[in-house]
Design a protein around this nucleic acid. Sequence first.
RNA 1: GCCCGAGUGGCGGAACGGUAGACGCAGGGGAUUCAAAAUCCUCCGCCCUGACGGGUGUGCGAGUUCGAAUCUCGCCUCGGGCACCA
Length: 852
Amino acid sequence: MSSEARYQPQEIEPRWQAAWDAEGCFTARMDPARPKYYVLEMFPYPSGRIHIGHVRNYTMGDVVARYKKAQGFSVLHPMGWDAFGMPAENAAMAEGGHPGTWTYNNIKVMKGQMKPLGLSIDWSREFATCDPEYYGQQQALFLDMMQAGLVYRKNAVVNWDPVDMTVLANEQVIDGKGWRSGAEVERRELTQWFFKISDYSGELLDAIDGLKDWPEKVRLMQANWIGKSRGLQFSFQRTDGQGAVEVYTTRPDTLMGASFVGISPDHPLARELAATNPALQAFREECAKGGTTAEELETAEKKGFDTGLTVKHPFDSTWELPVWVANFILMDYGTGAIFGCPGHDQRDHDFARKYGLPIIDTFLPTGQDWDIQAAPYVPMKSETVRWTRGFGWPEDATADAAIAAAIAECESRGLGEGVTKFRLRDWGLSRQRYWGCPIPVVHCDTCGVVPEKKENLPVRLPEDVSFDKPGNPLDRHPTWRDCPCPSCGKPARRETDTMDTFVDSSWYFARFTAPHAATPTNLAEADYWMNVDQYIGGIEHAILHLLYSRFFARAMHRTGHLPARSIEPFNALFTQGMVTHAIYQTRDDKGRAVYHFPEEVELRDGSGFLKDGTEVEIIPSAKMSKSKRNVVDPVAIIDQFGADTARWFVMSDSPPERDVEWTAAGAEATHKHLARVWSLIDRIVALPADQTGEGDEDLARAMHRAIADVTATIEGFAFNKAIAKLYEFTNTLSRSKASAKAQKQAGRVLAQLMAPMTPHLAEDLWHRLGGDGLVTLAPWPKADPAMLVEDTVTLAVQFNGKRRTEITVAKDASKEEVEKAALADEAVIRGLAGATPRKVIVVPGRIVNVVV
RNA sequence: GCCCGAGUGGCGGAACGGUAGACGCAGGGGAUUCAAAAUCCUCCGCCCUGACGGGUGUGCGAGUUCGAAUCUCGCCUCGGGCACCA
């Protein structure tokens, strides 16, 4: 073998990438003659280096993009950067410098790492969300949304670090303490900006039904998140005659089991009473300790404070219930007040036991005893139970029926009304941070809150800022805040809150259709390219990012920036699994976690050690995240074996929707396989054109089978199975003794089928086999259905469901013929030992089951 | 705590309710080689058996079915999300 007759990806890959660039293969063009296809992978945060999860994600999208291109679509496959966010500020704090410098440098490095992968991306559309051109249009969008009544201000709680005097993200609160100061975090109220996503609660929920090509699990998660509930809203009159407590309950059927009324520590009544009750005020302050996450609130120990106030049961004015302030009641949901029914709710039961409140059943299991004092009885609402304290429905009824009856009964008595509520809260977009899109409004002493004029956009972030102190540099900047009021022209102050980075990612997909338009979108371009035909991203975005984007698409339609059909912007969604890796951590002298990169850790017998011998704690299998440092850099694999090996390797084996624990074992074997394919084609190319052989028909059948299987598996996002089919076809071809003509044709088809996964190698094979032009631009092969038909079929024969033997019959054999053939089989006769089967089940083309 | 997933050989995984383990990795044996690498052939869930063959087996426990990895119920373990990580 001569020295050049080897697979050399380092030589092949840059050459074909240059050829694609020269042809402009990946530039998206509006083409009325072709159907369009918009494939989008969730854009990355520029953390510094790409990790193997990025390679997996973008290769998936690239397989789809290249496949659709071969199918004749005009493809849009763009890439950009989700570039605002905390890590850049953290880097500026840790290492000095400006967040922008850090961010743009990371983008440069990561783009440099992505380019060698040979992704079919239209880089001419690239942008970063921190580009003033992008965030200026985002500000314009914000002003339009403000005009449309979709933006407002209200108070909301934040994590407050009392030592650093700054707002903390949930991620920065560790075990209830500030990550830098170590101080105990408090919940504190601030006036903040909100998007009125709740205007669309019902619509966002109902429209989920139309998202046919979204994973069922994502649709379920979104539906649960929006959380539509039907319940009863009514009042408990105070016995002191000083008004009432309004409550909302989804279980009005348990009203006769009410034991107490609970209100949130932030409820107006709690605030009012605390003004004259220091002990209650102390309790409220106690409740305000800790972070703001639902997880923290719900797992905290249940605590209550008896206000001494009592209210009357709506059905019986002599029945008095105590009013307690309880830390597990959220002001954000319902009315911030509930009634407790300890008989049928675990949380209320715990609370009642702790504070000696009565526990009363309203229903019990049918035909069974239950000690309601020992445990609450909480069956499924669809289960029929025996009502002991119902009102207005049969003794045996489901809770579902009882709830409807209870609402009707209370309405007819004029005691309350049935209402529909949603769990979904308005979207708080204010961030007290520098590295985000400035909210384009001005505070004027005369005019109040005034939107900035559009011609003054973008409101740019100032460059001269320092991060040596905690808190928002915009707040302490000497001049940036000063500006004239857009309305009256008098001196005024800019808003210093910036936008949540989720805003940036809620419309980037629309901006890609016209990335440099002077308005947020260009309607002609949006009309042609929208919607995203295939969106691909991590399951971790199942709720927030996708829900916010659905809301934004509606808001953009309402403000004239998207066509009506784009209010659901993603036609199909694929959520790929995460690439996970162990986290290696040690503790610093304050007991805080310090994370270490995998390459810093040496593993011995399941334990890990740093270079200096320190043992590290190993946390198995977590999502790869820069902040946890459990990331694996794919560059070494690309350098050593080439991009095609990396691409094939991440697509093979694991189904794309499943999480994978990263291991590099096998990358070399993948490379060997590609080298084998290269050599195989090298051998086929060398065959004399007129060489005859045998098995042309078999090879042609295998080829059509491969076309059909690879096409179907790519369509179904089963890339691992597509690769398994390619292995099979490659093995068949390498053993074939068919004619040169047949082998060359099979080789060209192999190159085409491999092209979405290993595009550089495929170009090379295609070229050497005399393929026409670039394989990237060649039309996808079609399987001939006639070549897929088999004459005979092998059926398993079971005895009582256990496989005994198998028989081969004609494909179109009747049930009777199959049964006859089965009963004539030697192994079946032996198994029956003269007995007559009780029954023979024949499923044509599938199975024979002999029941004895 | 609440919502959503996942669990199959030594490993990654395959299997419209119908032959469990396709395909690949790792490993064993063999060919080639002075030797090695590379390459090729071959075996490969576990237990019993010389072989034929048999038993057993898809996290655990029940159930539905002629037949369950697949459907139902109850658990266990792991992962994701929980509104200021992106």
